[in-house]
Design a protein around this nucleic acid. Sequence first.
RNA 1: GCGCCCGUAGCUCAAUUGGUCAGAGCAACGGACUCAUAAUCCGUGGGUUCCAGGUUCAAGUCCUGGCGGGCGUACCA
Length: 678
Amino acid sequence: MSQRRILVTSALPYANGHIHIGHLVEYLQTDIWVRFQKLRGHRCIYICADDTHGTAIMIRARQEGTSEEDLIARMQKAHVDDFAGFDIQFDNYGSTNSPENRAICEEIWASIRKAGLVSEEKVEQLFDTEVGTFLADRFVKGTCPKCKAPNQYGDSCDKCGAHYSPVDLIDPKSTLSDTTPEIRTADHLFINIERLHEFLNEWTRSGGHLQPEVANYLAGHFLHEPLRDWDVSRPAPYFGFEIPDSPGNYWYVWFDAPIGYIGSTKQWCNRQGEDFDAWWRSDQTEIHHFIGKDITYFHTLFWPAMLKTAGFNLPTKVHIHGFLTVGGEKMSKTKGTFVRASTYLEHLNPAYLRYYYASKLTARVDDLDLNLDEFVTKINSDLVGKVVNLASRAAKFVEKSGLAKVYPDDGGLFQQAAEDGQAIAECYEKCDFNQAMRRIMAAADRANQYVDQVQPWVLRKDPDKAAELQDVCTVILNLFRQIAVYLAPVLPRLAEQTAELLGKPIAQWDEAQSPLVGTPVARFKHMLTRVEPAQVEAMVAASVESDLPSGPAATYNDGPGPLEAEPLTETCSFDDFLKVDLRVARIVEAVAVPKANKLVQLTLSLGGDKRLNVFAGIKEAYQPEDLVGRLVVCVANLAPRKMKFGTSEGMVVASGPGGKDVFLLSPDSGAQPGQRVH
RNA sequence: GCGCCCGUAGCUCAAUUGGUCAGAGCAACGGACUCAUAAUCCGUGGGUUCCAGGUUCAAGUCCUGGCGGGCGUACCA
């Protein structure tokens, strides 16, 4: 078997959100495939990065009162930690906001320019003057020009289904500021991808680059008519890379995101002293992308077109998977099935999910269902009951004697499993992990049948049969080890535990071809605990995000007193409300003002270096030392007021009549200083 | 309403892509065993492949129409 050179990527997670169990379908699928290739002895690297650019990042950074750079650095750390927790092992995890990526973007852009594929056209877009930004379609709401339904998004109406431009909306409002945006015209740059139509026809249908259903989809939906020009620029302000030959314009996030695969590779090459061209400009290197079906056309039309034009390697294969459903339904925050990676890890072992997904993944684009009851039974019955149990059934009988010197007759079981390694490898190779797991479990079934036949627990009772006992346990542990080898891409920790038990590392797929003999056996330790349904329930409960109060309202008997004491005031407009800039703040210092009856002097932090000096009338209700460190909500844009003891630069929000009855408002955990309260 | 996807045993999925394939795992039920994390082994039941037409020597597999579900708005794989 000649050594292949393989570069593998997963889609770059967007820096706007945390990793959840839906993302993990892809990263686990990819990680398993990469580990398999490495185990087979191929030269394989796994490249990924955070996708960091775009309007959404810019807006969120503003909302949090932080810089884009801080925001994406924080999210990258969170992403990296989540992936590590699931044993997802990247060779490099970069960022699209890196100098390497900028350089490659410029290089590819120059090639596209040189090929004469870029044109400039005027585009009318809505502009929010309050926030000072152009508005993507989903940031505009208004009345449908066709059916007059109110509150519709900028691209289409969900009442009548009409499609339109956001500039056609009646009474459009920016969802960011609720102000009326104005129409502004800007020059955008377009790539004339139609010029590569013939190439794409050929590429999508040949060479097994795409799954057949994907090739058909593209042919039927895009390639049957002329391809529309692709708008790849956005006018300032935009968080991204400015286009060198078009000042004031930035590359659209979907231009530089896939280039991030190359940029991240470049980073790895620089660090490792590797030859970059050997990875991205060599017909000896395979490029494999793993993506979800939602971003199919970016990776199967635009991306190959860019690579082709710039002279980089084309993808050898784009592996496309479906979405995750939980219990047959889309993930839901209110039902607690929208589970973050970090939440999962607080309750369950990552090996469970790695195996469960492996047992469900096929080479097709079908959605994958996580059935939580099945999750429990599958882990317990396959992994604990069948696989790990094998070691548990035999190891302690040979703790003292070790494995037999010569591999005994096992009726051909080892040989059968060794031969099956070829078929299992083929299943891994074509991403039919489901089939691979079935075959491996069949081997585990055969091994368990063998244990029942030879009955080591009977042999143990007869001292004359010690050699026979050692023989059958040698067989059982070797059959177990074969399974651990085959499962190593899915369960790397099990492979390590097996290595520890039998004193021989599992570094090669071929370790399953010859039995281990004459080696000592370590004291057996449990390798995997059973899943309790209660653990799963706890994870789901911890994931529930209810925006509605739970339980029937009738069970609460709150009296009318407070409302009567202070009746509701007249209605205020949303604009009026927006004038008040409420922020999450952390009390970093609190000192009782000696000469005042009620006042405590607080130093509030809004994150970074931003501090506010605030006098609050809460002396009778709180001890200053109890206040330090806690989060509160403050009015951050209140006009400063000179008081006897100094200037107060804001106000801490609290309820209650005063005196000893003052109750500071606290944000829920997770809130960060500087975040605006909306 | 429109568009796309899907509909095989209680559950999750197979069926070499029109040719003995109606199958597996889990669950259920009966029995065996007790080494093992109440794990394991043997056996049994269970489907008019959503419905109705059509094409064909032959249809879960292709076509048409119905019925049912999902997605299309998001945190987006």
